[in-house]
Design a protein around this nucleic acid. Structure first.
Lengths: 294, 294
DNA sequence: TGAGAAACATGAGATTTACTCAACACCGTT
DNA sequence: AACGGTGTTGAGTAAATCTCATGTTTCTCA
């Protein structure tokens, strides 16, 4: 392993100009440098690469082999270099997003549709975080952006606020609790609560509302899909607690009613986490801007 | 254009071992060297290639692009290097033969058939020299070996003797001239002479036999193919002068007779000319040996 | 055929590049 | 808090690759 791209570039220039002097000029080196270079190659391979007694300079079979290699390899290298420059300028990249909350998918999907139009060269993907820890995955480079509602201090990660949300109780429009302006934990003691199928710790309604008050709902039912949860609620099978962005359209239809939870509402702020080194990248910033504008 | 194969080899080693220290060991350099190398790459491309806070070391999209390049390029390079080593050892090569005399084809064809079995990796080809000068073509690398009957001194070409031959008059077995033991120029004055369609200067029968004696045959007829010439002679359309190797089999059939020309016979020696630098190559020497043994 | 031009080769010295060494910083363990 | 493992950094050194000056070869044209 001695051959370097420099050699291939020289060889190709010599081949194309048909003489050392012109090739040297093109490569911005002296003719002597090229001569030495070729000699060292011939030395290494123990075979002449050019027929010296011929004008224009002609290749031996060994030389032809190297030219062939150069013709295959150099365009690939140039292509890759261009790609890399574009990566550096943020025109090319990967945006694998991890979401930990199922409901986020509801606002993320339309945002990504618009995003894809603006950044067709960015490879976009979503991973719903059930089986893996989002922040470690971000550190390891498995994903490039994490949607999270609790930012943490970290030297290598950076969080950006997206928007505030409020978790609301959703129930049929004719449900008895619609008479209350605000819901108290005890109000849910007699209800069937429909949730996403994840650990209770990760559901605000338990960790921040029911558990502090020591209240347990009459029953808990689970469903993966937001639309199914809404359907179950609408048909009177139970109540659910969902973020407001999910409910805006559903409420307008008139079949469902929503109420805030607790005296000040169950509020939070969504954040996007990215690796600090990449924070300023154009295509990441643009995703964040789009997510905020929603 | 800054990237070198060295970088790709390093990157691949790092990727495969998952850490700088082990990669350095594999490449027989210090870990520090690798660190510097990567840093200079990241500097050049203005983009990080690795995520530092991860074990095993993980690539950024930019790094992935380079690894992809390495995976494409390095095998090609290695393949070419192997080929070149084989070219140097003479296991791989090209043998384009130029022949100036049509009749040479008769002995060359069977020689090449055997040769191809011994050297399947050598690309063999024959060019009958009508429209080009054989020795300049050899110097320029258009052909690799020239069959010639008159060796010349040259600093860059080397001639090797193959075998002696004698040009003989060939005629029908019942031709009046068969009564002569040897043929004199004047004997051909009344005959139709059948030759290959080339300049008279290049036909021994003219340049070395008839012209010195100032004799012109009654008629001259031309044919490309040795077998056609023999057919014409056998059917009494004329006589021909051909090298002995062509006539050995034909004579045995009994329909043709041959006689030497002039007091000492029209003799010569065939030579193989190659570029001096390649003279010692195994596959060329073996061709010469095969040609002699014929 | 021989003088001159053009083109490649060569050797020595300079420059640049890449490497090693040694000290340091960081992280995760124990 | 100390330690092992790992990557980073800066300075100094070694090696490679260049340039410059000159030599050699080849080709051209009178």
């Amino acid at each position: 392993m001695f051959l370097e791209l420099r050699h291939l570039r020289s060889l190709l220039a010599i081949r194309e100009t048909g003489n050392l002097a012109r090739a040297a000029e093109r490569l911005h080196v002296t003719q002597s440098a090229l001569s030495h270079q070729i000699k060292s190659l011939e030395n290494y391979f123990e075979a002449p690469l050019f027929l010296r007694n011929s004008k224009p300079l002609r290749l031996t079979p060994a030389g032809e082999k190297l030219i062939e290699l150069a013709r295959q390899v150099l365009p690939l290298v140039e292509g890759a270099e261009n790609d890399l420059k574009r990566v550096a300028r943020g025109e090319l990249g990967r945006l694998h997003i991890a979401i930990e909350c199922h409901a986020c998918f509801e606002w993320l999907a339309p945002v990504l549709n618009r995003y894809r139009q603006q950044w067709p060269q960015i490879e976009v993907d979503i991973r719903v975080g059930v089986s893996f820890e989002a922040l470690p995955a971000l550190r390891k480079g498995e994903v490039d952006l994490v949607i999270s509602s609790d930012p943490v201090k970290s030297s290598d990660l950076q969080f950006a606020e997206l928007f505030d949300y409020e978790a609301l109780l959703v129930m049929p429009a004719d449900h008895p609790l619609t008479r209350r302006k605000r819901i108290q934990p005890a109000d849910l003691a007699g209800e069937t609560l429909i949730t996403y199928p994840v650990n209770r710790q990760r559901l605000d309604v338990f960790s921040r509302f029911l558990q502090p008050a020591g209240v347990e709902p009459a029953a808990v039912r689970q469903s993966e899909l937001t639309s199914v949860i809404l359907l179950l609620v609408a048909s009177g099978r139970g109540v659910a607690v969902l973020p407001d962005w999910v409910l805006r359209e559903a409420e307008q239809a008139g079949t469902l009613a929503t109420r805030p939870l607790g005296p000040r509402g169950l509020k939070g702020t969504l954040h996007a986490a990215v690796r600090r080194a990449e924070f300023d990248t154009a295509y990441l910033q643009d995703f964040i801007a789009l997510a905020r504008g929603c």
